[in-house]
Amino acid sequence: MSTATGYNFAYLDEQSKRMIRRAILKGVAIPGYQVPFGGREMPLPHGWGTGGMQVTASVIGEADKLKVIDQGADDTTNAVSIRRFFAHTAGVETTEQTAEATLIQTRHRIPERPLQADQILIYQVPIPEPLRFIEPRESETRKMHALSEYGAMQVKLYEDVARFGHIATSYDYPVMVNNRYMMDPSPIPKFDNPKMSMMPALQLFGAGFEKRIYAVPPFTQVESLDFDDHPFEVQSWDEACAICGSDHSFLDEVITDDNGSKMFVCSDTDYCRERVDQGFVGTAADLSTSEQETEQ
């Protein structure tokens, strides 16, 4: 694959990469703690994954195989453009298969297929501070982290229980990492939270706008906050995936016409494809594949 001329390998200059690499190492050493770094301008707007891209650019090497997903899908705009960006600037191989990838940059999902040792999962993070909507001042949230003063978050979850009878937070669900730091898992559905704990792969988080990097090393305990009488629960569906029939993956609801018809399909397109290849079928097996495209 040809690489772009006039740019350094993987776009970022070496000095910036070194700075980001040092931040990543500190992040790994202090799991869940947000390390400030000198975020660089990337050739796409903030909010499009510039934090994740800077982490990927600093980690990626010629031998890597990159997969990029956006809400679980390999074929959405954000995923396609970031994958092409690194194919172009680093000349690396790309893949859509979770099992084959050495690096997976993700927006808002963790693949359904369990990740393995030596894979690295890189999250794009919009707002890295879990306490930000409770306490807008950075000086204060820093103190709260320093003192492990996390009661306010329990109160927020309790307000859910008081109002709705259950914890209504369904994504961006706060976790405690290694029993010390409260961490924002990025806006993944809480369905994915349990996958973060004791994962054999390394998890890195990059927030470009807020200029923070944090990490969860392999085999690290990640616990979702809850109460004794309202334990943490993940979403479940009465439906199964219309394409592959999976009843255990995260499903997207897709509106199929103007009359309110809808179907549920796996949000993880590679997982769905893998199951179809294995011969699993759903109720809509005869539908054209163009309807696989998920919304959002």
Partner: peptide, 19 residues
């Protein structure tokens, strides 16, 4: 090859620090 070697050494450092 400073670019590739720095990256490889960093990945080794990342591996030993995370494991």
């Amino acid at each position: 090859d400073p670019v590739q070697a720095s990256q490889q050494v960093f990945r080794a450092a990342l591996k030993v620090m995370s494991e």
